[in-house]
Write a protein that binds this DNA or RNA. Structure first.
Lengths: 109, 109
DNA sequence: TGATCTTTTCGATATTTCTTGAAATATGGA
DNA sequence: TCCATATTTCAAGAAATATCGAAAAGATCA
């Protein structure tokens, strides 16, 4: 992951509604959630949530697919894992091998 | 970690100079870096860097100690690990046990 | 086709954040 | 004490971001 991608992802996550949204999507797992259900769960207006989901989409932290009238959102777990790997890169005082395996395991969730 | 702590940490990380700074500090390990050396490495003005380090301090992602005329900064690896754990909490579709061990390992770096 | 439901887009305003120059504070040495 | 070095604090202006109401776009069903 490149620096600009990490910055975009971190900025996307650093907003209350978006942080709640992605955690709900992560919790929901591969099934994901419809935008409308997410709006209900978050007690958010449809247009505000839509704007925030667009930010998460732009950061590639979520993906969406149309499903009848609704649109289903899913968290991109690989991207989340890549972000965390970027943050911890070169940790352990120049001995990254001590950290990498642990980080790799997260992407297997 | 609570939601407000995670938001503060993510906002702190989502800025170019601060992201570079914490990664350098993580790379530097327990020794950390003097503010002045960090400023040179980042080619940043002292006051701008100081403002950004204050944001990282407020987020508790770094700590500082005076050392003669200089001030030494160190990354708080426990806090970084806690942030990542918060992000991945309840992942794996309600079976967090699959993820927790991997995340716990990161804090051992 | 027309009615309805779901979601997004647009335009405006309010708030927050970033950077900078100037000044202040703290430490160590002559 | 006086001076130089290192870092922070303050105030202000520019830029980015969040939210809202209104309206538009896409999809389904009678």
């Amino acid at each position: 992951m490149e620096k600009s991608d990490a910055l975009t992802a971190l900025a996307a996550l650093s907003q209350p509604m978006r942080l709640d949204a992605i955690r709900l999507l992560i919790k929901a797992g591969p099934t994901g959630l419809l935008a409308g259900d997410l709006a209900k769960a978050l007690e958010a207006r449809a247009n505000t949530l839509s704007a925030n989901l667009a930010v998460l989409l732009n950061a590639k932290l979520v993906r969406n697919t149309r499903e009848g009238r609704g649109i289903r959102y899913r968290a991109d777990m690989d991207r989340m894992a890549a972000l965390m790997a970027y943050l911890m890169e070169d940790c352990c005082g120049g001995h990254p091998d001590l950290c990498r395996p642990a980080i790799a395991d997260i992407s297997a969730c």
